[in-house]
Design a protein around this nucleic acid. Sequence first.
DNA 1: ACTAAATACATTGATATCAATAGAAATGAG
DNA 2: CTCATTTCTATTGATATCAATGTATTTAGT
Lengths: 173, 173
Amino acid sequence: MSNSVEIPFSTTLLVRDTCLCLHAQRAARALARLFDDALRPAGLTNGQFSLMMSLNRPEPPPMGPVASLLAMDQTTLTAALKPLQRKGWVMVMENPKDRRRRLLVLTGEGKAVLARALPIWKETHAMLDGRLPDGGSARLRQELLAVSGMAVETPKSAASLRRPRHSGRAMGE
Amino acid sequence: MSNSVEIPFSTTLLVRDTCLCLHAQRAARALARLFDDALRPAGLTNGQFSLMMSLNRPEPPPMGPVASLLAMDQTTLTAALKPLQRKGWVMVMENPKDRRRRLLVLTGEGKAVLARALPIWKETHAMLDGRLPDGGSARLRQELLAVSGMAVETPKSAASLRRPRHSGRAMGE
DNA sequence: ACTAAATACATTGATATCAATAGAAATGAG
DNA sequence: CTCATTTCTATTGATATCAATGTATTTAGT
């Protein structure tokens, strides 16, 4: 049937070398491994560290804004909280003001774990920073931010209409 | 016990704003959603597209180099191939020259699916490109590449000794 | 107050991701 | 040639990720 549909090898090389999505996935995986390895003695993964750190606020946040901040699906956040709850590092409580909402609360033990992980993060990040070309760190950060923000709103893509999640900003300055 | 270990909110904001790992995960998730949405009519995810495209070579590659190219664990590749095999888009064959190795072969139907996905990728990527500041695309690509390559080799990290995977380059120019 | 719509979160099912481990085959030292 | 080592892949278990869907609660329109 659909046989002999040949795609030129040059096209493969083009995609490999230019696809921003592929480059982002590669970099994300590599950085995840780097931080996972470093944080392992603290008992955290990079994602757990980011999540728990984002819960360290004066007022415990609900789930929606945290999911937006991390640019992840709300259902992913629900799942990601499970192991942290089991370990007693995070509590998911009802908000009496609006019983649909939850309050994500870092426990004392959760804060202690996070405090132990913090110097590892600093060290690892400083090391990473030092290896990037001068100013590369800031540039890269800014461009990644632009990409995340951009992909959130896709006027052309009907997907944002079909699935109006991922609204954007969160956690006020 | 380990109570009242307070981490200042300013530290949380610092991590949120500067952590390259977090920024990379955010951008990777956002881009994955963008391309997943776009490629959905073709029946592929962004990862499946990248993987299958990387198999479109004159000679079918073994698993190791493909995993390195995608900067993913070899076990992840094994798992990622399963659904593609079920759909009949990829065949995993033994290499008679070295029976430890596998040859990853794109089937005719696989090539057809990939060919249908290609214009979607082009369109989506052009749209993305257009929204980035001038030259931002190339700069971002280069920096992501630097990060992926860097995180692969971590002389300081004993992890690379304990777990000598992810060797680096693959798929010759 | 009543009801339709919107909001916030949870559940299910499928895939992605990696650490730890195991297995099979090839390689090298003697 | 033999055996220990190395290389290449698969399996298992845990978590991460999202689409589709469901449920409870609040809000808005009347």
